[in-house]
């Protein structure tokens, strides 16, 4: 939140004056405000609904809540400490912690691996490196749902060629969070590599030439030059990855072998009830689960406002 354009050098400001004139006209500002309102109202309506009693919410639209104010915290109470929220399997706090335990490694590890792979594919090219890159790129389109069963079979049967067990079953090894972590990493790789590759490949080539002339090897260029430069890009991709993992339920419930390690999305699904939607609880639950993504977003926001590569190329 703290980062401002004002912190930029004056020269930079001047350069942009011309564009500013065209895009800071009242029409442009009105356009942005309009979009902001359009984008926020549905969410806002849901937020209001989450504070309305069940009967009211079923009777009329959320805007009526302002004409005849009648708000309640009952929905949140039910979600957080009520019977459907907390009594069995450790309650919503436990699933909250599970979500953290699942999401943190499933965000950091794909980032690290993607940085490594993207660097190789962009700058340490070898015969066939483009084919590798575009194969990985194309794999983005493989639907998650089609991969679940083969991966599960891989974990529980290993790989067999004829009677020869090439890779042993990993049923024991994927107890707990392991299966979930590994699966998330697998699905994250194509997009992560594709996006990070975009940043890495846009680094100016003279940096690499200079370093090579100085005698730096492939590895040294990676950790002493590339890694520091792409940090902001990694941070911003990290947010997206974090959001995707945090909001996932399918992978977790396929690879978890016990309800004690399932994330908060599982808890919210349980709340909806066997017979479908309890809108009042669902809206409250949705906001509870949004809390962490929003905090993360605001904490890392400076990378967005200032720019993903702004700090780097100048160096």
């Amino acid at each position: 939140m703290s980062a401002r354009i004002e912190t930029r050098p004056d020269a930079d400001q001047r350069d942009r004056k011309k564009v500013r004139r065209a895009f800071s006209s009242p029409i442009a500002s009105a356009f942005v405000i309009l979009i902001c309102v359009l984008w926020t109202v549905p969410t806002f309506g849901t937020l209001v609904t989450s504070f309305r009693p069940q009967a009211d919410a079923a009777k009329n639209g959320w805007w009526n809540a302002f004409l005849h104010p009648n708000f309640t915290l009952a929905n949140y109470q039910e979600v957080l400490v009520g019977s459907s929220g907390s009594n069995l399997q450790g309650g919503i706090f436990q699933s909250f912690i599970n979500s953290l335990v699942i999401t943190i490694p499933a965000t950091i590890i794909p980032l690290a691996l993607a940085a490594m792979a993207a660097y190789v594919l962009a700058w340490v090219r070898f015969k066939g490196s483009d084919i590798v890159f575009f194969t990985i790129f194309a794999l983005q389109v493989v639907p998650l749902q089609m991969s679940l069963l083969p991966i599960l079979q891989f974990f529980s049967n290993g790989v067999k060629i004829g009677d020869f067990q090439l890779i042993p079953p990993m049923t024991e090894a994927i107890q707990g969070f392991w299966g979930i972590w590994i699966a998330h990493c697998m699905f994250a790789m194509p997009l992560a590599i594709f996006l990070v590759h975009n940043f890495v490949s846009s680094l100016p080539s003279d940096i690499f030439e200079a370093a090579t002339v100085d005698g730096a090897g492939v590895m040294r260029i990676f950790y002493s030059i590339v890694l520091p430069l792409i940090k902001p890009a990694l941070a911003s991709f990290g947010i997206f990855q974090f959001l995707w993992v945090w909001n996932d339920l399918l992978i977790s419930k396929t690879f978890a072998n016990s309800p004690f390690i399932l994330p908060i999305t599982y808890r919210i699904q349980m709340m909806t009830g066997s017979l479908g939607s309890r809108m009042d609880l669902l809206t409250a639950g949705a906001f509870v689960s949004m809390l962490v993504p929003l905090i993360v977003f605001f904490c890392l926001q400076k990378y967005f406002v200032r720019g993903l590569l702004a700090g780097s190329v100048k160096g």
Binding site: M116, A117, I136, L139, M146, M186, M189, V218, M219
Partner: peptide, 29 residues
């Protein structure tokens, strides 16, 4: 010798994950 080894170390883990998690399932599909 560094270059090929570096490629293996940096790219290997990603390729392994992608092969098991996506390439095989895609072929199977």
């Amino acid at each position: 010798a560094q270059r090929p080894l570096a490629i293996i170390v940096l790219l290997g883990p990603s390729l392994l994950l992608v092969t098991v998690g996506l390439v095989f399932p895609a072929i199977r599909t």
